[in-house]
Design a protein around this nucleic acid. Structure first.
Length: 496
RNA sequence: GGCGACGUAGCCAAGUGGUAAGGCAGAGGUCUGCAAAACCUUUAUGCGCCGGUUCGAAUCCGGCCGUCGCCUCCA
């Protein structure tokens, strides 16, 4: 059983084999930090987080590099736009680097709550200006770039394979009505590797061509090379950046350094909101914070981070994900179902007084079956919906077992819990190590207080004083504590 | 104008040549003092429409209709 991935370079599914056996180098285009993370970021980084986690599950040692774009990304069309960071700095009346710092922190804060593991290296574009200048010089030396009025442009016509990733024909690009001809470009298709700064530009550096700043595509080219070497295994990112960004990264790297850039291109599809494109320019963006707080026109309620994560993983990463309130609330209930079983298993495990390490023979076949199906799904280009389906089938089997009123050995419960932790936790990142809203994981005092009420209620029920027992249950429910009577006693959980 | 993706039950979503996974919602049932949770049964003779290839197609080919996206900043 081997991992197969869809490679946008070949537009085919291919067997994944890293260049150096046992090691994987992965670069993913990171955010431009001039605003809060939105659900498009969430989809992209959850997607590659799962890729990262699954590669490690398979035993690879992964180096995951994801840049922070803090300079060079321009607002608007053409070449006259303002730097995004610079503009936001002007709006908020602070230094550009304050913008970068604060939105970088927000970015990691949001990704942390979504349980996205941090990359191994988060290099900043502004910290790699010398390398980007060297890239421009190398391209000039090789004849694939030219300097003009303090700008350095990559010459697209000089590089015949330009367009190979996005499958655009270079000749067609000329007809694009939107491509404005900058006065100092030789060809409208050329793009800037280095840009001359106007006097008002807040972020600028000295260069052989005067004061300026790097072009947007340059950072990824140099930082991927610096930290992963060429070629490296996986380049990830969002499909909307396939052109011109990814295309230009490849061209610059191959033209400057020779040889291949990235070996496998994995690109996630985009996000829509109620069926239409989400974009900052559309005015309908949904930030991660808005999804978590529910403070958004389109949302009826807040959604937990794990619900958002589960929802994103419930469709394949190369499909578009349509965020609707209805779909999210369905996901919330589905996720609750999964988590409820995990919580129950952990509570039963905590209640076991003697340890019996024997694993039920019949159930161990179920465990093996789950693992097989799960791995088959994930090996099939990270098919998380299929993997989740396997997990839900397993879930049903577990529910049947723990409700069978037959004794279940602690060894079996432990094996079940470990499986949830490994597949649902380590790989998919949707099953927390501690379920804070579940009795078993609750803080001591909270659990003790609820246990006192449960004891009182149990006594009332024994006396058939249902008025009292129901009053306790109803009032606890109003406070957000749900009681469930099981044959072996009452358990509780917090209803979020 | 160029390029591309998608259209599967009320909703979300896998499946890409062998006779429709999974989740949500709905219906009936079991369990329960009543609930909750869970479990069982049930919910697409059919996968946008029309043709074609094939023993066999949701899956391949052609045409049509529809939706969305990229080509311009965006993950």
């Amino acid at each position: 059983m081997t991992l197969r991935v869809y490679n946008y370079l070949s537009r085919q599914e291919e067997t994944f084999e890293p260049l150096h056996p046992g090691f994987v180098g992965m670069y993913v285009c990171g955010p431009t930090v001039y605003g809060d993370a939105h659900i498009g970021h969430a989809k992209a980084y959850i997607t590659f987080d799962v890729v990262h986690r699954y590669l490690e599950y398979l035993g690879y040692r992964v180096r995951y590099v994801q840049n922070i774009t803090d300079v060079g990304h321009l607002v608007g069309d053409g070449d006259e736009g303002e730097d995004k960071i610079g503009r936001q700095a002007r709006v908020e009346r602070v230094e550009p680097m304050e913008i970068v710092e604060s939105y970088t922190r927000n970015y990691f804060r949001d990704m942390d709550v979504l349980n996205v593991r941090r990359p191994d290296i988060s290099p900043r574009a502004s910290g790699h200006v010398p390398e980007q200048i060297e890239l421009a010089q190398e391209l000039l030396t090789k004849g694939h770039a030219y300097a003009s009025n303090g700008n350095v442009y990559f010459s697209v016509p000089s590089w015949p394979t330009y367009g190979k990733l996005s499958r655009r024909k270079v000749d067609d690009l000329e007809e694009g009505a939107r491509l404005e001809v900058a006065g100092d470009k030789r060809d409208p298709r050329d793009f800037a590797v280095w840009r001359a700064a106007t006097s008002g530009h807040l972020m600028q550096w000295n260069s052989p061509w005067g004061k300026g700043f790097p072009g947007w595509h340059a950072e990824c080219t140099v930082m991927a090379r610096k930290y992963l070497g060429l070629p490296f295994d996986i380049h990830g990112g969002g499909l909307e950046n396939i052109f011109p960004h990814n295309e230009s990264e490849i061209a610059q790297s191959e033209a400057a350094y020779g040889g291949a850039f990235a070996r496998y291109w994995l690109l996630n599809n985009m996000v829509t909101i109620d069926g239409t494109k989400m974009g900052k320019s559309q005015g309908n963006s949904l930030t991660v914070q808005q999804a978590l707080t529910g403070k958004h026109d389109r949302l009826s309620q807040p959604y937990s981070p794990m619900t958002v994560r589960y929802f994103i993983l419930s469709s394949h990463y190369r499909q578009t994900t349509d965020f609707t309130d209805e779909a999210l609330s369905a996901a919330a209930r589905g996720y609750e179902r999964l988590l409820g079983t995990v919580g129950l298993v952990r509570q039963m495990l905590a209640k076991q007084d003697s340890h019996n390490s024997t694993i039920d023979a019949q159930f161990s076949a179920t465990l093996v079956d789950l693992k097989t199906r799960f791995e088959e799904a994930m090996n099939n280009d990270f098919n998380t919906p299929q993997a989740l389906a396997a997990l839900f089938d397993f879930n049903r089997a577990v529910n049947t077992l723990v409700n069978s009123q037959q004794p279940v050995s602690s060894g079996t419960l432990e094996a079940i819990d470990n499986t949830y932790r490994q597949l649902g936790g380590d790989v998919l990142g949707i099953i927390p190590a501690e379920i804070s809203t579940q009795g078993a994981g609750a803080a001591g005092l909270e659990d003790e207080l609820v246990q006192i009420l449960i004891t009182l209620r149990t006594a009332a029920r024994k006396n058939k004083d249902y008025a009292t027992s129901d009053a306790i249950r109803d009032q606890l429910a109003a406070a957000g504590v749900i009681l469930e009577d099981r044959p072996d006693g009452t358990v509780w959980k917090i209803n979020r």
